[in-house]
Amino acid sequence: MRTKVREELAPRTRLKWSLKDLIAKMNPIIRGWQNYYAAIDKSMANRFLAKIDWHIRIRLSLWWNKKHKKRKASRENLFKLLQVMGLKTVSNWG
């Protein structure tokens, strides 16, 4: 899962994309992981999936900081922005 996230967010050509476009690209992938792990015990899978959510947010913050070199956002503000923009979560906690 981490490799898939890295493949989607790492190319330098993605720096031309808007945040809305990246979220639109990531949401179907995240929704697929949600559907796949829905049949598994929620408490066991949720702990693992929370780490994947964290990884997605960190990768998006790295993308944001590369795109906007002069305006680095704090992680808290960026995570709130991602939530407002509609980024889905894999786990149930978000």
Rank of each mutant, 00 (worst) to 15 (best):
R14N: 11
R31A: 04
L19S: 03
P28D: 08
E8S: 09
D21I: 01
T13V: 11
N27S: 02
A10D: 12
M44F: 13
Q34H: 08
R6L: 14
S18F: 01
A39R: 13
K20D: 14
A10T: 15
A10I: 06
G32T: 08
P11G: 07
I29M: 15
D21T: 11
G32A: 08
R31D: 06
D41Q: 10
K16S: 14
N27K: 01
N35W: 06
S18V: 01
D21Q: 13
R6D: 11
W17S: 15
D41M: 01
N27L: 00
S43P: 01
P28T: 07
M26N: 02
L9I: 05
A10Y: 13
I23F: 03
K16F: 12
S43F: 08
A39Y: 13
K4C: 04
I40V: 15
Y36C: 03
E8W: 02
E7V: 03
N35A: 10
Q34Y: 08
K4E: 14
A39M: 07
I40M: 09
Y37D: 00
N35L: 11
D41T: 11
W17T: 12
W17F: 13
S18A: 00
A10C: 11
Q34P: 07
V5C: 04
L22K: 06
I23G: 02
I29D: 00
Y36I: 04
A38F: 08
I40T: 13
K16P: 07
S18G: 09
S18L: 03
N35Q: 13
D41Y: 06
T13E: 15
D41I: 10
T3A: 14
P11N: 08
Y36D: 11
E7D: 11
R12Y: 08
W33K: 04
K16I: 08
E7F: 05
V5F: 12
K16D: 15
T3L: 10
W33S: 01
A38C: 04
T13F: 03
L22V: 09
L15G: 02
Q34F: 08
M26S: 03
W33F: 13
Q34G: 03
E8I: 15
V5L: 13
W17R: 12
S18E: 07
W17V: 02
K20N: 12
I40N: 06
E8K: 12
I40L: 10
T3N: 10
N35D: 07
G32Q: 05
I30Y: 02
K4F: 04
L19D: 01
V5E: 00
P11D: 09
M26W: 00
A39K: 14
L19P: 05
L22H: 07
Q34D: 04
Q34W: 06
P11C: 10
M44I: 13
I40Q: 10
K4Y: 10
N35E: 09
Y36Q: 03
P28G: 04
A10M: 08
R31K: 09
D21E: 14
Y36R: 06
E8A: 14
I40Y: 12
A39N: 13
A24C: 07
G32P: 06
I23N: 00
Y37N: 01
T13A: 11
I29T: 06
N35V: 05
D21V: 04
I29E: 07
N27A: 03
R12A: 13
A38V: 07
P11W: 12
K25E: 12
R14D: 04
M44W: 09
M26H: 01
K20R: 13
A10R: 13
